[in-house]
Design a protein around this nucleic acid. Structure first.
Lengths: 138, 138
DNA sequence: ATATAGGATGCAATGGAAGTGCATTTACTG
DNA sequence: CAGTAAATGCACTTCCATTGCATCCTATAT
């Protein structure tokens, strides 16, 4: 069994050909990808299948779903041992206004946030917009 | 000149009847509102006009535009003396999964965020999702 | 008061992305 | 090999954001 298959098996996702391809694509990407990105890459495959593949990944902890405020949902593979916990696993995302790409800054965990009395946090989304290192260097 | 008119004048927005009504509506709201909310309230007015009214407000610093991840953009009146500065004015938003409303926690400024070398922040969006105080109390 | 110009408004249409229903195919089980 | 459940593919729908264009209103100059 390949590494890719193992990842899916570990998360109770049946390793179909399509899913393995999408997983590999995601793993090779340094930045987050949108459904449209994936669609463009697998131009011979159906949009709905890709959509549901991603949905399955997210539901089973294979991938993160990221709302970077651009209007199109982004996806990225979860780090190893990630259990998407609010207090320990949430990192911030950076959206570059120049190259239009969103990267996971996995080393930058979201600081603890104090909420007023009565509020209970279940999830936190922190997106910083600006210019990324690559675009700044040019 | 009324207070409402004064607010618009101060931000170089011509105070038309429609704009004054929308401004008053926003001022009376404790929570953020979407275009659909406003449309429902001003059912005799055109969607596009309301859309452009909000756009004008945002562009001229009368209102904030909030992306709470629900897919529909929210709006709220800027605090007094707000200049939407990244370092001093950005507060966090809380989206309640139960009542589906988004509130501005203006007292909770976004903590300073350290970025890796080469990254330059221009804007920060921090949305916490969970259960709000009202829904918790029930 | 009237002409004029520029902005505001209203209507219609477009576009992008997410999501759903259903038929068909695939793959695993006995 | 038969049967079943999941996965896939196609068509369609819905929701929200956005734009083009015609019309209306208002402020200003003459």
């Amino acid at each position: 069994m390949s590494d890719l298959e193992q990842i899916l098996e570990n998360n109770n996702v049946k390793p179909t050909a399509m899913r393995l391809l999408v997983l590999q694509y995601l793993l090779n990407k340094k930045v987050t990808v949108s459904l449209v990105n994936i669609e463009a890459h697998f131009h011979n495959s159906d949009r709905t299948t890709l959509y549901r593949t991603l949905k399955t990944f997210v539901e089973n902890g294979v991938a993160h779903q990221i709302d970077d405020g651009t209007g199109s949902t982004k996806y990225a593979i979860c780090e190893e041992n990630c259990n998407c916990d609010v207090d320990t696993d949430l990192h911030l995302h950076f959206h570059c206004a120049n190259c239009n790409e969103t990267v996971c800054l996995t080393a930058h965990k979201i600081p603890h946030i104090n909420l007023p009395e009565g509020f209970k946090a279940e999830n936190v989304n922190l997106v910083v917009k600006g210019i990324c290192d690559k675009c700044n260097g040019q």
